[in-house]
Every structure is written in structure tokens, then in C-alpha cells.
């Protein structure tokens, strides 16, 4: 077990846009980024699960990050992308408004989210980084993708 990779001084992020905010996804979890595709709906899934797509022969679920975060539904356009992340052995696609850049961020720039944000937004974040005038919200993928919480939601909806 080798969870700590020593003293990393910086992290690499894929920065995506969702509504007006910029979010950082740790690059080691990003499998690939693809254009929007037609999605097949899944019955009785939680509302933020958009459905499934064919990723080169593999069927993977896609979630709508806007809905996940309780934001208003946005318009899908040419800039919309599906960020395919890999977490705990399963692949999941996340729909974002746009992919902006890949950047390196020094660890020292990250502060706990509580310091800068209201409590409601904190649930899915593992930190916040200041970059000039902008904030980059660092996603806690484990939370965003939490299978079990999501399962329960699904059960609630069918109950």
C-alpha cells in the first residue's frame, strides 16, 4: 500500500467550467475527455444520472455535474464535454460546460473550502485555490461519485 507519494509540492488539475465557476479535477483520475454524445436514459436512476454511453465498447454511466451540484440546467453546446474519470476501478463520465485548461497548482495555494465558501458548496470539495482574482474549486471526486449515497437516492425515488 503506497498511498502517500511523498511530499508532493504541486498538483496537476484539469480545469473545467460549470455555470460561472471553475472546478479542478485531479489529473490522475481523468481517463479521457470526449465530446457530448447521445446518452441512453436509465430508468429509476437519480436525477443527476444522465444515462449511459458507449465508450469504445464499454458501457459507462454519465452524470450531469450541474444537477449533481443542484445548479440550474444549462444549455448543451459545442463546448460541452464529458470528462471520463476513473475512481475505485469504475469509469464514470461527468458532463461539464467546457474544459478550460490543464494546470499545475502549488499545494500551498490550496486552503480548506470552509474558509472561503458557504457550507452548502463544501460537500463536494476538498479545497479551494486562489488564482489571481479567480477561485478554483477542487473537486473531491470520491464525494461527487459516492456510489452508495447515490444508491440510496435511487432507492428513495423508486420507493
Amino acid at each position: 500500500m503506497n498511498a502517500q507519494r511523498g511530499e508532493t509540492k504541486e498538483q496537476q488539475l484539469v480545469v473545467v467550467r460549470l455555470d460561472r465557476e471553475r472546478y479542478g479535477v485531479p489529473i490522475e483520475h481523468v481517463h479521457e475527455i470526449i465530446r457530448m454524445q447521445e446518452v441512453t436514459r436509465i430508468p429509476r436512476a437519480p436525477s443527476f444520472v444522465e444515462g449511459v454511453i458507449n465508450l469504445r465498447g464499454q458501457v459507462i454511466p454519465v452524470i450531469d455535474l450541474r444537477r449533481r451540484f443542484g445548479l440550474a440546467a444549462g444549455e448543451r453546446n459545442g463546448a460541452s464535454r464529458i470528462v471520463v474519470v476513473e475512481m475505485n476501478g469504475s469509469r464514470v463520465g461527468m458532463v461539464v460546460d467546457a474544459v478550460l485548461e490543464v494546470m499545475r497548482l502549488p499545494d500551498s495555494a490550496v486552503v480548506p473550502p470552509e474558509e472561503l465558501l458557504a457550507a452548502s458548496e463544501v460537500a463536494f470539495l476538498r479545497g479551494v485555490a486562489k488564482q489571481g482574482d479567480d477561485l478554483i474549486l477542487l473537486l473531491d471526486l470520491q464525494r461527487v461519485l459516492e456510489v452508495h449515497e447515490q444508491r440510496e437516492l435511487a432507492e428513495l425515488q423508486t420507493a
Binding site: 430508468p43 429509476r44 436512476a45 444520472v49 449511459v52 458501457v59 454511466p61 464514470v92
Partner: peptide, 12 residues
Amino acid sequence: KPLGSYLGQVDG
């Protein structure tokens, strides 16, 4: 193809 562990069992 399986739907995968993320979605789990989908009734029907």
C-alpha cells in the same frame, strides 16, 4: 454488457 457497479442493479 454489464451496466457496471456504479449504477448497480437497475430494476427491469
